[in-house]
Nucleic acid binder design. Structure first.
Lengths: 135, 135
DNA sequence: GTTCTTGCAAAATATTTGCAAGACG
DNA sequence: CGTCTTGCAAATATTTTGCAAGAAC
């Protein structure tokens, strides 16, 4: 996969660090928290990772998963759109092993909001026990 | 409403502080974060509020809403069951005024999980602009 | 008296910013 | 040069614990 092109599609100027962060996110099998990224990319300071994630978020290259316990997690969008979050899907947080799973193949429900509410994004987390821990 | 009975139904021993916290939550028009509670109940130290909320959570008297930005928020359950969370519903977080609304009247969707995942609870947050801010 | 609860202080975490040095064009 | 990016240190904010004093039984 061509990450350089991906960054450019999201109007993000290319740097070595940004590539590293993008690849770390892409290489993970689920959303990562800031501290998980820190551990994974020892060469970049946490403030750098943080600022990179902030930028990615602004350009909708990552979306943010909240829930579970360890604070916010980040996940690479699989879209090429720098205007909106796309490719949103539910997540499953295992209360035992603390891992967050993407339920990629599931649709987010279509919620009918009361008059006047203007939705932008949605965050659906199901908590419970994952197959690994449920043996 | 009889909060003393409510606490007892959840097997929580009665104290003045616990009543205060329960009433503060009940009196709010949406979920409150720890710091919001701190501001609301000036007479109790934050550690006390924290421990009370932890206890309430264990006894399923409150449930936890994650999402939006200001960290975790707590909301009183409207059930009398101390074994499970009940009365869960979606929430709406306004990105402009930062308020969290309960969408009490909406059902949580029924998500079909892949084999082996055992759900316990669900957290659905819709982010966007609320009617107040959307004028 | 023994157990439970509370307040205070402080540790542990997590998030965010200031600033100067370096990279890049 | 001038702008953008980075690392380091440090400020903030948030969550959590230790401990001793006090309340409840």
């Amino acid at each position: 996969m061509d990450y350089e092109a991906l960054l450019q599609q999201h109007h993000i100027k290319l740097t070595a660090n940004r590539l590293l962060v993008a690849k770390a996110l892409a290489g993970a099998d689920g959303p990562l928290s800031l501290s998980e990224l820190e551990r994974k990319i020892m060469t970049i300071d946490k403030s750098g990772i943080f600022r990179t994630l902030t930028l990615f978020r602004e350009q909708h290259l990552v979306h943010v998963i909240e829930g579970g316990s360890e604070g916010v997690k980040y996940e690479l969008c699989h879209s090429h759109n720098s205007e909106h979050d796309e490719d949103l899907h539910p997540h499953f947080y295992c209360q035992h092993c603390q891992k967050t799973y993407c339920l990629d193949n599931m649709e987010l429900p279509d919620i009918e909001l009361p008059e006047g509410f203007q939705p932008q994004s949605m965050n659906l987390i199901i908590q419970g026990i994952c197959p690994e821990c449920n043996l």
